[in-house]
Design a binder for these strands. Structure first.
Length: 138
DNA sequence: CTTCTCACA
DNA sequence: TGTGAGGA
């Protein structure tokens, strides 16, 4: 068994995750509803989170502090999932003319950069959902 | 006692 | 997001 398997192994209940992430059960469940995390379930329907899930929750909390809404965070976090490859393949399949100027991967990289920058000047410059809207309406 | 879903004076 | 109900 490798590290990758360990990180995705369902190990902790919501109680432990709450302490680890400093988030309320309500928030954690709400983020799951919005597909930002996908914890496994026990036979009794109890959530079981992996190290990856905890890491993601921590990232979500950071982005939230930086003024992003769930929609925006979802777009940024979509990376680590198997979506990148899909997007890149789809991008390659397109004829040059119809290719978007930037791939989703590149766009996300730019957004991260902007967020980091905005963070240096203070999140006041970043209004709620601004980045998400930019992303969606591109 | 903890977690789950659903709903909202 | 919080909170309470009602069940597991």
């Amino acid at each position: 068994m490798n590290d990758k398997d360990r990180r995705s192994m369902p190990l902790f209940g919501i109680g432990i995750v709450m302490k680890l992430t400093e988030l309320t059960a309500r928030q954690i469940r709400y983020y799951e509803e919005n597909d930002l995390i996908h914890p496994e379930r026990t036979k009794g329907n109890q959530r079981l989170f992996s190290f990856n899930d905890v890491d993601r929750l921590l990232e979500i909390k950071n982005y939230l502090d930086k003024g992003l809404n769930l929609a925006g965070i979802k777009l940024l976090l979509t990376d680590e999932d198997s979506n990148v490859e899909k997007t890149e393949e789809k991008e390659k399949a397109l004829p040059k003319e119809k290719k978007s100027v930037l791939t989703d991967k590149e766009l996300r990289a730019i957004l991260r950069q902007e967020i980091t920058e905005a963070n240096r000047f203070g999140k006041a410059n970043l209004r709620q959902g601004e980045l998400a809207r930019f992303f969606v309406n591109r």
